[in-house]
């Protein structure tokens, strides 16, 4: 569904994204992880034509941007990282504007709007100005807006920031449901458990370089499926082992209290991006 090769972006002399290659399948939930400033938002902006690539090729649904701009745009749904709702309109009017821009016929548009407002639990606030909304309400409205025109590809740039745990879980369910119906989802997040819970594959980028790309499970196995955590001189340490037996025998050699647990994506993230910082 999304094919990216050699995608590069420079702002002045700074290279923000360096020769990124990705291929995301239809119906896949793909996670893009990385520390602040890694280039996640830039990647999404490149894929949605808000930023002009310095080099590389992007194809969406087999179409290239140069010739099929309008056609591609109607396939994409976007929840940006920053709030970009029209604060001079009500919640409903924001959705209506979006529906009109995407050419959804009136009757269907009204039905979809009512449905989505219901889903994001904003029905009773639908006539209020967006200016009066809380941060989480705005974000929920942005999610509703992105889904209004039934996009084929959904870009979620930290979609659940500031949402309470219940809402977050409902958004996860929704994303899974949409993907099962064939929507391709690319999401970025700093909540690693979110990526682990949702994504079939994740890519980790750091300083514009792709440093890992695989299923969460394989990435954890690469590191070692078991971790031993312990504290020594008020510093946290950990060590990875391919199996539980090795982990247990190692922890027996330690004199402090230890925790043996399964490794998770967060360990992978910290190991891969943390080490880099030290080495450089």
């Amino acid at each position: 569904m999304i094919e990216v090769s050699g995608l590069t972006k420079q702002f002045d002399v700074r290279t923000v994204l360096n020769c990124l290659n990705l291929s995301i399948d239809t119906g896949e939930i793909f996670g893009l992880l990385g520390p602040n400033g890694a280039g996640k938002t830039t990647t999404i902006r490149l894929l949605t034509m808000l930023t002009k690539p310095s080099g590389g090729i992007i194809r969406i649904n087999g179409l290239s941007f140069e010739k099929n701009e309008q056609q591609i745009k109607s396939l994409l749904g976007i929840v940006p990282q920053h709030l970009n709702l029209d604060i001079e309109l009500t919640a409903r009017e924001n959705l209506e504007l979006h529906g009109r821009l995407h050419g959804i016929p009136t009757a269907e548009r009204n039905r979809r709007i009512t449905e989505l407002l219901e889903f994001v639990e904003l029905t009773d606030r639908s006539g209020d100005m967006v200016q009066t909304f809380s941060g989480g309400m705005k974000r929920r409205l942005m999610i509703a807006r992105a889904l209004l025109h039934r996009p084929k590809v959904l870009f979620l740039d930290e979609p659940t920031v500031g949402l309470d745990p219940q809402v977050r879980r409902r958004i996860w369910e929704l994303v899974r449901h949409l993907a099962s119906e064939g929507m391709t989802v690319l999401l970025t997040t700093h909540y690693i458990e979110e990526a682990q819970a949702l994504c079939q594959r994740v890519a980790i980028i750091d300083k514009g370089h792709l440093i890992a790309l695989d299923t969460p499970q394989t990435l954890c196995q690469g590191l070692g499926e078991y971790v031993v955590d312990w504290e020594e001189n008020e510093q946290r340490h950990n060590k990875f082992f391919p199996n539980r037996v090795d982990a247990a025998s190692y922890s027996a050699s330690l004199t402090t209290t230890v925790i043996i647990r399964r490794s998770n994506l967060e360990d992978v993230f910290v190991e891969l991006t943390g080490r880099k910082v030290v080495e450089r």
Binding site: L50, K73, H98
Partner: peptide, 14 residues
Amino acid sequence: YHKTLEEYLLAPIS
């Protein structure tokens, strides 16, 4: 500031 122009840039309109 409000970045609402993006809504139009992302939409399939000329």
